[in-house]
Design a protein around this nucleic acid. Sequence first.
DNA 1: TGTACATCAGTGAACGCGCGTTCACTGATGTAC
DNA 2: TGTACATCAGTGAACGCGCGTTCACTGATGTAC
Lengths: 195, 195
Amino acid sequence: VELTVRYAKGQKVETRKRIIEVAARRFREHGIAATGIATVMADAELTNGAFYGHFESKEHLVRETVQAEMAAQVAAWRLTLRSGGLEFALRTYLSTLHRDMHGTGCTSAPLLAEIGRQPTATRSAYAAQLEESIDLFADYLPARDAAIKRSTAVAIIALLAGTLQMARVIPDEAVSAEILENGVQAALKLARARR
Amino acid sequence: VELTVRYAKGQKVETRKRIIEVAARRFREHGIAATGIATVMADAELTNGAFYGHFESKEHLVRETVQAEMAAQVAAWRLTLRSGGLEFALRTYLSTLHRDMHGTGCTSAPLLAEIGRQPTATRSAYAAQLEESIDLFADYLPARDAAIKRSTAVAIIALLAGTLQMARVIPDEAVSAEILENGVQAALKLARARR
DNA sequence: TGTACATCAGTGAACGCGCGTTCACTGATGTAC
DNA sequence: TGTACATCAGTGAACGCGCGTTCACTGATGTAC
């Protein structure tokens, strides 16, 4: 069996990546159910037919997008935590800037509930990346016991997602900003507790 | 102008209520975008055409449903808090029973992110009910200062929503249950802090 | 008491549209000889 | 070097279907006289 490369090496892989990126943006902005294949493909500057050369179905695209974007988010968190520490990372996440950055921000917060309605494979992909996030956060917590670090990290992540979602709902700018700042304080409170 | 009652008094009002109830169930279970008018009306044992005798549009149904179901939820919280206190209410909310009760449970958690994508009118309806929840929770917190009660209540509500969503995503039953219990502990920790 | 009429909650077919998916095809590239 | 052929990423029309919404209608009820 011979393996020939007729197209620029990795071209198809790059197209696939581009589809995932534009899909992620649409998903975050409008939700998974409200996002159509045709609009995603148009965003990627392709026609709808090309989709099925890259993915078996919409379900598969969702799975791969959740997987890839959550991994990217963990990497981003790692960078922010390393460069600025916990409070800086929390403040970056719960900033009005991030709140208003629907398409390019966090994947978890806007899609968490909807991921809960996806097939097990997609939810497992999320769960795996969540474990990465938990381990990462745990490294920046002052507690001694590993189990306490873990449970605190879980609580902080849940709090962050809930707070960002809530701030995005509230139309009153002052109240919304208050909710964000409040989330930072509560997360720090949880982080500081040793047991 | 004469006002005659040709049908059983309040029949239309009751039908309207029934539509909102079945819509709420569908919205919680499948999300707003994934729920169609025709299926809601079929659930209410009516044909799709009848819908527009009760609501101007799907957007209006969403608004009224969010308003009504959030109000009902506040009432349920009030009852649970009054009868069992804070920890009991937290444990009820973050129970595996509630986690698995997608259609009839909390409206806020499964729809929070999606409500954030609705028009301002719907988001304002949510915001008003959220304020009720905050005031209600604040009454069951040990802090002295009203501002601290308020900010703690906000944090607890955000934590509850995020935790329930997360627990619903995780396929591993043990990990999911751990996340729920962990949420209870974190909420209690926040509640106990006096400042 | 009996009949003609008004009211109106609900019916069900139809509208244009976008959905996820399929498929025969195009056309640029590389291979074989 | 030149020509016939194979590969395959992407094209674009089409599929059946459900969406939100409209509308002429039905038929049970109550009113008027």
